[in-house]
Design a protein around this nucleic acid. Structure first.
Lengths: 143, 143
DNA sequence: GTCAGTGCAAACCTTTTGCACAGGT
DNA sequence: ACCTGTGCAAAAGGTTTGCACTGAC
């Protein structure tokens, strides 16, 4: 079992939240899926295992995961929110292909540092940030 | 009159689009308002001058402005699209205050260059990008 | 047994579209 | 006169909520 799942169970206990079949199924599925799922996609995947689980519960569980800090909600401009598991590793940013929609992650410490510099110049305290490069991936450029 | 308005008139002529009182009013207002308006805000402002102008026309005119390249549509995660006039100057990014909602612009060539480097490493061709720093502005930090 | 969790259906909110009328060319 | 532009009202699409039932504790 995923360590993230255990962390979430700890969070639920702290908050006095109940452990249910639905939450277990949703959380497990979420952490076993590669990043950036929409509510609908996750709901669809979860339903393969347990068709009784409703959209609303997936929605509410993703909110819980977001509040607990174990998931991030992202908006990539395709009209729906996408969620990704938060890693304890470095923060990462995204390369988004405009043709095939593939989302690739990257991290770059130099950019992070420059961001801090810019913020400092403006007397601004950064809580988090978002860097997205939109364009064409290697595969799509060849075609 | 704003040079941007003239550019848009040229664009309309090229495309065989008609010049109407509504479009004139909307475009003029758009270019005279400081950045990042939502459709609703622009509609509201425009209506002060001419109450007969409908939401739909503002919506469609902003799409036109976006297609013409004179406006950019942005998504800051507050649930509605925001539009800003495109400057011929440098590309800029945003500092967004989580408390008061103020959006400040900045530009940093070093970051732009590093982005290109990252893209190149992934065989990715960048068309455009988005960098947003969320946190607390100078004013809100003092309080 | 109690009270939080679930799932349906409906409300909401923003964006988008159909259609009849208005108005620019 | 023609045909695009406009504005209402309604559809669409995603998100959020009310409420009665279910089930964890």
């Amino acid at each position: 079992m995923n360590t993230k799942v255990v962390e979430f169970e700890r969070y639920m206990e702290e908050k006095g939240l109940k452990s249910t079949i639905q939450r277990d199924e949703i959380v497990n599925t979420f952490f076993n899926v590669k990043g950036h799922v929409s509510i609908e996609e996750l709901h669809h995947t979860v339903q393969k295992r347990n068709p009784k689980i409703g959209y609303t519960t997936v929605y509410r569980t993703l909110k819980l995961l977001t509040e607990s800090g174990l998931a991030h909600e992202r908006q990539f401009g395709d009209g729906q929110a996408r969620y990704e598991a938060v890693t304890t590793e470095e923060h990462h940013d995204h390369l988004i292909c405009l043709k095939c929609g593939t989302i690739t992650e990257f991290e770059n410490m130099k950019i992070e540092r420059l961001q801090e510099d810019v913020a400092k110049e403006h007397g601004f305290k950064v809580k988090n940030h978002k860097l997205e490069l939109y364009g064409y991936c290697k595969k799509c450029r060849k075609q």
